[in-house]
C-alpha cells in the first residue's frame, strides 16, 4: 500500500482544522464549559473579567489566530532544531 507523503498528511490535517474553524464552529455548543458551569453554580463566575484586545472569535479572526499559532510553533521548532 502506498502511504501519503508527510506533506499530504500535514496538508489534510490543516485543511480539517480550517474546516472545523469555518464550518463546525457554527454548530459548536454555546453552553458554558465545565469550569464556567462550576463557577456559575458555585457563585464565583461574577469574579471573571475578560480584558479584550481583539474581541472574541469570528471565523475570520479564528482563522488568523490559527495561522499565528502555526507560524509561532513552526518558527520555534525550526529554531530549536537549528540549535541542536
Amino acid at each position: 500500500m502506498s502511504r501519503p507523503s508527510t506533506r499530504v498528511v500535514i496538508g489534510v490535517g490543516l485543511a480539517i482544522a480550517a474546516v472545523a474553524i469555518l464550518v463546525v464552529s457554527k454548530v459548536a455548543s454555546t453552553a458554558p464549559d465545565g469550569l464556567n458551569r462550576v463557577a456559575a453554580d458555585k457563585g464565583f463566575q461574577e469574579a471573571a473579567s475578560h480584558p479584550s484586545l481583539f474581541g472574541g472569535y469570528t471565523p475570520a479572526t479564528a482563522l488568523l489566530g490559527a495561522v499565528v499559532v502555526l507560524a509561532l510553533v513552526a518558527g520555534v521548532s525550526l529554531l530549536l532544531r537549528r540549535r541542536r
Partner: peptide, 15 residues
C-alpha cells in the same frame, strides 16, 4: 508540531 498546535487551537474553540 505545527499541525498539532493548529489542530488543538481549532478544537479548543469547538465546544
Amino acid at each position: 508540531a505545527g499541525l498539532v498546535a493548529t489542530f488543538v487551537f481549532a478544537a479548543q474553540m469547538l465546544n
